[in-house]
């Protein structure tokens, strides 16, 4: 029951982030780049819940984006699955307990996602400009994502707090 509730919460968070990303956030361009709320949310979820959940959340997020934008189905799922998995693995291994793990993960995943998207679009024969993606837009997008990282992570921690991990005070009842 708790697991189902947790999964529903995760699904809702990813759905909200995906809808906001495709309708509003992607058009908030600043100095040629736009923030990626979905990526930042996915990294936060993966760091909190681990690689497998991160990969699953990434797949679901990608499916939502490709469906909402009528894009090539599977393209965003492929990239975001890997993003969720790697961010989760980082959280489980070298990033564990580090105060800046969230920022490092968001930074690294922003760069990897841009490079991955570029490669995948080339493979699929879609005309894209490497200069625009890797030089003009990447730096502002990176900075905007890093700015989003802390508030999004705080919100995700709050929303995804496990009720089962509450302190054991409940086990002793105080009467009178």
């Amino acid at each position: 029951m708790t697991q189902a509730f947790d999964a529903a919460k995760l699904g809702l968070i990813v759905l909200t982030a995906a809808i906001l990303q495709v309708t509003v956030v992607s058009s908030l361009e600043l100095a040629g780049g736009a923030p990626d709320l979905l990526l930042v949310t996915l990294v936060a979820v993966a760091l909190l819940r681990g690689a497998s959940v991160g990969a699953g959340a990434g797949f679901f997020a990608g499916l939502l984006v490709d469906t909402a934008l009528l894009g090539t189905l599977g393209l965003s799922s492929f990239l975001l699955t890997l993003v969720g998995y790697w961010a989760g693995r980082y959280g489980e291994t070298s990033g564990r307990g580090r105060p800046h793990a969230g920022l490092v993960a968001v930074g690294a995943m922003t760069i990897l996602l841009a490079a991955g998207e570029l490669v995948l679009h080339f493979v699929l024969g879609v005309e894209v400009s490497p200069g625009l993606v890797l030089f003009d837009a990447l730096l502002p997008s990176l900075l905007l994502n890093l700015a989003l990282a802390a508030p999004v992570a705080a919100l995700c921690v709050r929303l995804l707090r496990r009720t089962g991990r509450e302190p054991a005070v409940r086990e002793v009842r105080l009467l009178g």
Partner: peptide, 22 residues
């Protein structure tokens, strides 16, 4: 192994979807 199976399955599914969709 389980973790790798999950991500492997999802990546494979994504690639399959890209191929079929195209």
């Amino acid at each position: 192994l389980q973790r790798r199976l999950v991500v492997g399955f999802l990546v494979l599914l994504s690639l399959l979807m890209i191929t079929i969709y195209g």
